[in-house]
Simulated scan of single mutants.
Amino acid sequence: MGAASQQLPRSSDPEPSEWDRSEGPTRDQLFHVLRNQRRRFAIQHLKRASEPVDVGDLATQIAAWENEVSVEAVTSKQRRRVYNALQQTHVPELEQTGIVEVDRREVELTERAADLDIYLEVVPGEDIPWSEYYLALAGVGLSVVAVTWLNVGPFGTLPDIAAGAFLAVAFVLSAGANYYYQHENLLGGTEKPPELRGE
């Protein structure tokens, strides 16, 4: 690894039209960023940091996650392998999209990193997407309102306000659960990256 004063190289930009920073990252660029685990791990760590992160420290944390060991247990070989990849490829690509800023050896996220969040909802295999959940909840709510209004069966004894209160409470509780669940499954939402939280 080079001296502490070594600056990260800025990779060449062979196709400027595809990497126009003035317009912000495109959908394809964001998916390109997120398809690589090391870039996701880098964003995860940078989101949790309160200040710019030295690329060497970033490499150490990513190596720890990749090898499922503590930061203290990362070997120099593991760290060097990640450091070289960050320096030569991943950090320059993140910088090209405007997601990070680099000052000498220090990296930090820009405001544009928030654009990544809309692509980061993780839905485990046994769960359903929240959009489907809300659609089902709306169907149940409309059914309750309809049978209450038509005085069908036991629902005929319920006042109309009860149906409205049921819907309001159901949606408020669901929205709270949705917010918490989504926050937990975003990069930077918790200490570990999403793919390591099931351990």
Rank of each mutant, 00 (worst) to 15 (best):
G98C: 05
V71M: 03
L94M: 07
W130F: 04
A85E: 06
D103R: 11
G156M: 08
P154Y: 05
V147P: 13
N151S: 11
V71L: 10
L137P: 15
D115Q: 05
A73H: 06
S131N: 15
Q96M: 07
V91T: 02
L120C: 02
R105H: 13
E132G: 08
V144W: 00
L120K: 03
S76H: 07
Q88T: 15
G125C: 11
L137V: 11
G141D: 05
P154I: 10
I99L: 04
L158P: 14
P129S: 04
L135H: 03
V74R: 01
G139Y: 03
G141C: 03
Q78I: 07
E126V: 09
L158E: 08
N84M: 12
G153N: 09
S70R: 09
S131P: 13
E121N: 15
V123L: 04
E72N: 10
R112F: 04
E121S: 11
T110M: 06
V91I: 15
E108C: 09
E106Y: 09
V144G: 04
T75N: 06
L86W: 01
F155S: 09
L150D: 04
G139T: 08
D115T: 11
D117R: 12
T97S: 01
V144E: 02
P129A: 02
Q87D: 15
G141P: 08
Q96D: 13
V71S: 15
L135V: 13
E132M: 04
V82Q: 03
D103A: 11
R81M: 00
E95V: 10
V122R: 02
Y119K: 10
R79N: 14
S131A: 11
T75R: 08
P92A: 05
T97D: 10
R104N: 14
D117N: 11
R80L: 10
R112S: 14
L94H: 06
L142G: 06
V144P: 08
Q78P: 14
S131H: 06
L109V: 14
I118C: 06
L150M: 07
E72K: 08
